[in-house]
Design a protein around this nucleic acid. Structure first.
Lengths: 234, 234
DNA sequence: TGTACATCAGTGAACGCGCGTTCACTGATGTAC
DNA sequence: TGTACATCAGTGAACGCGCGTTCACTGATGTAC
C-alpha cells in the first residue's frame, strides 16, 4: 500500500515537528517547550501544529515514549552485538549503551529521567510500557547470567522486605518471563539507579567539573557492580 | 548589637520571600519561578522584590546555596547523633538523613539535583562550596571508618584511571584533610550517586508506583553498600 | 479524460493571560544635632 | 525633647516580550463518477 503525496508530507512534517521540538528542548528545557516557537522555526503558524497534535502535552507524550523506546533499543542493540554467553561483556555493553545514549541525547534523557514537567501528567497507559523496557533490558541480561549460574544476587536482597515482595509478585512478575526471581527485579532497579546516578552526576557536573568526558567514574562503577555480582571460582 | 525595626522587618521579608519561593517551586517547578507570582502571594508589587534581590537569578542562587547547606547540615546532625565508633550506624544515619531531607523538601532537592534551570548559570564561587559539603559529609564518615580499619576500598577503585587520579590530586585533595586517599574520593562520589539514584527514582516513580513510601529499595541499597565495604573478620 | 465534490493543511486575527525589569514617585522609619 | 534631613521599602505605570488555544477562512490535494 503506497502512500499518497499527502500522507508522505504529513509523515515528514510530523517527523520535523519532533526534531525541532527536541532541538528546542536542548536549548530551553522541556518545561519551556513552546508550540509557537516550534512553528516559528518551521516557518509555519502555531495553529497549524494542531493538525498534528491535539495540544502541547500530546506532543510531549510522544517525545517521551519515543525517547524511552530509543534508549531501550540502543541498549538491546548493544547487547545483541556481544556473544550471548559472555555475560560480563553483555552487561558492560548494555551499561555503556545507556551512558552513550544519554550523552548523545541529553535533552531526551533529561526529558524522561529529569525533573518532571510541571503541570504535565504522563498518561500511564502510554508511558509505563516503554519506561519498563529500559529496566527490562538490564534485567534480561542479569537473568540470563543468573540462570547460567554466573552471578549471584547479593545477600542484602534476601529476603526482600514483605511490602516489596508483595508489590513485585503482584504487579511485576506476571508481566515477565517465568523463572525471574523477585529479588532479581529489585536488583535490576537498584542497578539502574546506580547507572543513572553516575550518568546524571556526570551530565550535570555534580562530581568534578571536566570529569564527565573520560567517564572514569562510570567505568569504575560498572566494574564494581559486576564484581559484586560475579561468582568467582576460587 | 540590636536590630532596628527596619532591619528586623527586612530580615523577615527576606525570609518570607524565600519561603514563598520554595512553596511556588513545589507547585510550578523551579524553572517557572516567577517574581511577580511571589510578590502577588505576598501582597506586594513585583518591583518591591528588587529591594531584596538584584534579579530572579540572584534569588535562585540563594535558594540553591541554602538548600545544599540545609541538606549537609541535616546529614551532619544525623551523624553526630550516633556514637562515633559505630561506623555502620553513622553511615546509615547519614544515608537516611539524605533520603529524609529529600522527601521533606522535594522542591529543594529537585532544585539542586534535578534538571538545571534553562538560562540560569550558577555562579561557581557561591555554589561549589556548599555542594561540596554534601559529598564531604559522606566522605567524612567513610574516611573515619577507613582509618579505623573497618572498611576497605573495593578493588575496582585501585588503581584509579590516571585522568581521574590527576584531577582528584590536583583539585580535590588539597581542600580535604590529610590522609584521605584519592580512591576514597572516587568512592564517595559513586556512593553519593547510588543514594541519589534510588532517592530520585523513588521520588519520581521510576521504579514501581507506590513503592516510595516504604523506602524498601533504599534500605536494601544502603545495606548493600555497607556490605560491599565492610571488612568482616572471619 | 474531465468534472464535481470532499478532504484537510495551513493562515491570520483574536482572546486572555503571563513574564522580568525600569523608572519616577510617595511616605514611613531612623538619625544627627 | 524637638526639628531637619537622609535613608529606603514599596507603588503604579510602562516597555516589550512571550504563551496556548479557538475560530472562520482559503486553497491545494485527492477521489468518485
Amino acid at each position: 500500500m503506497t502512500q499518497t503525496r499527502r500522507e508522505q508530507q504529513r509523515e515528514d512534517t510530523t517527523t520535523e515537528i519532533k526534531e525541532v521540538a527536541r532541538r528546542q528542548m536542548a536549548e530551553v528545557g522541556a518545561a519551556a517547550l513552546s508550540l509557537r516557537a516550534i512553528a516559528r522555526e518551521m516557518g509555519m503558524t502555531a495553529p497549524a501544529l494542531y493538525r498534528y497534535y491535539d495540544n502541547r502535552d500530546a506532543l510531549v507524550t510522544t517525545l517521551i515514549v519515543e525517547a524511552y523506546n530509543a534508549l531501550a533499543d540502543a541498549m538491546l542493540a548493544a547487547d545483541s552485538r556481544v556473544v550471548s554467553d559472555d555475560f560480563n561483556g553483555r552487561f558492560q555493553a548494555v551499561a555503556f549503551a545507556f551512558r552513550e545514549w544519554a550523552r548523545q541525547h541529553p535533552q531526551d534523557f533529561t526529558l524522561i529521567y529529569g525533573t518532571p514537567i510541571p503541570g504535565y501528567q504522563a498518561p500511564r497507559d502510554q508511558t509505563v510500557e516503554p519506561a519498563g523496557r529500559v529496566l527490562q533490558t538490564i534485567g534480561f541480561v542479569l537473568t540470563a547470567a543468573w540462570q547460567a549460574g554466573k552471578i549471584r544476587i547479593p545477600p542484602a536482597y534476601q529476603p526482600l522486605p514483605p511490602a516489596l515482595q508483595t508489590v513485585i509478585n503482584d504487579d511485576i512478575l506476571p508481566q515477565l518471563p517465568e523463572n525471574v526471581p523477585a529479588a532479581g527485579v529489585a536488583l535490576t532497579m537498584t542497578i539502574w539507579a546506580r547507572l543513572y546516578g553516575v550518568v546524571w552526576g556526570e551530565l550535570y557536573g555534580h562530581f568534578i567539573p571536566g570529569l564527565a568526558e573520560s567517564g572514569s567514574l562510570y567505568h569504575i562503577e560498572v566494574a564494581a557492580i559486576w564484581a559484586e555480582l560475579c561468582i568467582t571460582e576460587a
